[in-house]
Design a protein around this nucleic acid. Structure first.
Length: 139
DNA sequence: GCCAACGTTGGC
DNA sequence: GCCAACGTTGGC
């Protein structure tokens, strides 16, 4: 199972919106590297839901419920893709970007190294650190 | 609101 | 094929 981090501006689409929907389609990705990551996702993978711009924090964990399909917001024939996601759990403590940046063990995270990438992989070791930061008694 | 990073477009 | 101009993302 792989781990990911996916960004969304909460005033456009927030974690609460996903909870309300039950299952969401992660579409609108228009970056080739991000799209590559979408294609690599498998059902059962887990992803951090990160609120960009407003909040700037990871707020929840979701699970990939459907592998890559042609992006329904694009006309047929284009190669952009979307995946299906379902909410899993809200983090006990959300993880602000500042905390991620201040954690040396997360310095190599893809989202830190390339801040504008909206879909990025998270290593197992990084995931463990993030979950530690998100727990009530960890850190 | 500003600006850095990055991608895309178009002139040459 | 290079590179300047421009648009977008997203942090500050």
């Amino acid at each position: 199972m792989a781990y990911w981090l996916m960004k969304s501006e909460p005033d456009v689409y927030s974690y609460d919106d996903l909870v309300r929907e039950g299952e969401g389609t992660w579409d609108g990705v228009r970056n080739h590297l991000a799209a590559q990551h979408l294609k690599a996702m498998q059902v059962g993978d887990q992803a951090l839901f990160y609120h960009s711009n407003i909040g700037k924090e990871a707020v929840a964990v979701m699970t990939i419920s459907g592998a890559a399909i042609p992006d329904p917001t694009e006309p047929e024939g284009t190669r952009w893709v979307a995946v299906k996601v379902k909410p899993l759990r809200k983090l006990s403590r959300s993880i602000p970007l500042a905390v991620i940046k201040g954690e040396p063990r997360l310095a190599e995270m893809a989202m830190i190294r390339q801040s504008r990438l909206s879909v990025s992989p998270v290593r197992d070791s990084e995931w463990a650190v993030l979950m530690e930061l998100a727990s009530e008694n960890g850190g």
